[in-house]
């Protein structure tokens, strides 16, 4: 299997899907040069009628993505940073997420929106949000958050072949991370979690940027005699409830790790699934490791203080697991 960086895997998916389907077009801010590297080279290969820089006008770009589907295109819109989803939110929330139901199912909405998300780079409050809780709450939008190169490629290819509006949120801090990517036409279905690590004492449910620190925490805990199972959701809409509940049934304990704020974040939703449908399995309270209800600060020491990390995850796990190595 070839080794590819996370961002290269996304780039590969775009090349392959644009080759495969001439109706796939890419628009967005600075996509021709590609500051993240994910759209790099597409312009030279496909030209201005397949990939094009837009003006900086998120509120119009999102609506245009919807409009261009009327002409038969699958639009891949790159919004750069997930915070800019808020700037373009009207057409996402009021048009794209609702148009299929409002029209009685007259249309499909082949739209894929890409945005980098997450903290850890001192990008400060307006370039570090994850935005997925807001998207999850809309109802009509799928949300993929790959944690590794193979999933990044496979989930994006699935999104681009789907007739449903989908977000692919890129874990910005993971862009350079290497990983094995299966050969050939690698597709990863939506709504199917992966067991990133098996364990029997506690379940850590996580996604995207938080899979790596969760695995780091699990490794450290293992040395203390605590075996954590790490579930990588891969997509938060649709969400693999069965995988969460099956692991919970096995371990009886749940820690949810998510890079969004605590109040009405994704972690609270996952905890509610466990309380509602996995209550009989629970041997301890469900714990959440996420971002406090604050904006992401700039200074590295302050940013680190509010972001989840392996140590915070391990502390949360120890708090609900009584079995500790002697």
């Amino acid at each position: 299997m070839p080794r590819r960086r996370y961002i290269q895997a996304i780039n590969d998916a775009l090349f392959e899907e644009m080759e495969r389907n001439e109706n796939v077009i890419v628009i967005g801010e600075d996509v021709e040069l590609a500051i993240f590297g994910d759209t790099r080279g597409l312009y030279d290969r496909f030209g201005p009628n397949r990939i094009r820089n837009t003006p900086i006008c998120e509120a119009t770009m999102t609506g245009m993505a919807l409009g261009a589907t009327a002409a038969g295109f699958h639009v891949v819109l790159h919004m750069m940073f997930a915070n800019f989803v808020y700037t373009g939110f009207d057409a996402i929330a009021n048009q794209i997420a609702k148009m299929r139901l409002m029209t009685g199912g007259q249309i499909a909405l082949p739209i894929t929106i890409i945005a980098g998300y997450g903290g850890g780079g001192s990008n400060a409050a307006q370039h570090s949000d994850s935005a997925h809780p807001a998207l999850m709450n809309l109802g009509g939008i799928n949300v993929a958050m790959p944690s590794n190169s193979a999933d990044a490629k496979g989930l994006l290819k699935t999104a681009i072949r789907s007739n449903n509006p989908s977000f692919l949120l890129e874990a910005s801090a993971r862009g350079g991370q290497m990983g094995d990517v299966p050969d050939g036409d690698h597709l990863v279905p939506f709504g199917k979690a992966a067991i990133a690590r098996e364990g029997s004492d506690v379940t850590i449910v996580t996604v995207g940027s938080m899979v790596k620190p969760s695995l780091d925490a699990a490794k450290a805990l293992s040395e203390e005699g605590i075996e954590a199972e790490v579930i990588d959701l891969r997509t938060v809409v649709p969400i693999d409830e069965a995988a969460i509940l099956a692991s919970l049934a096995k371990t009886g304990r749940l820690v949810v790790v998510d890079e969004s704020r605590d109040r009405c974040g994704a972690g609270g939703y996952i905890a509610a699934i466990a309380a509602d449908k996995g209550f009989a399995s629970l041997k301890a309270p469900v714990k959440r490791v996420n971002i406090p209800n604050v904006a992401i600060p700039f200074a590295p020491i302050a940013e680190a203080a509010v972001l989840p990390d392996a140590n915070k995850i391990a502390v949360a796990v120890r708090g609900i697991v009584s079995k500790v190595a002697a």
Partner: peptide, 30 residues
């Protein structure tokens, strides 16, 4: 709305049609 007749929908958001029409026109241009 009747997409089969090119009617991309009435819209409850005042100004909601600007970007949608522009996107459709972009599609036609391509």
């Amino acid at each position: 709305a009747d997409f089969s007749k090119g009617i991309l929908g009435a819209n409850g958001i005042v100004g909601g049609g600007f970007a949608i029409a522009t996107g459709a026109a972009f599609g036609a241009k391509l």
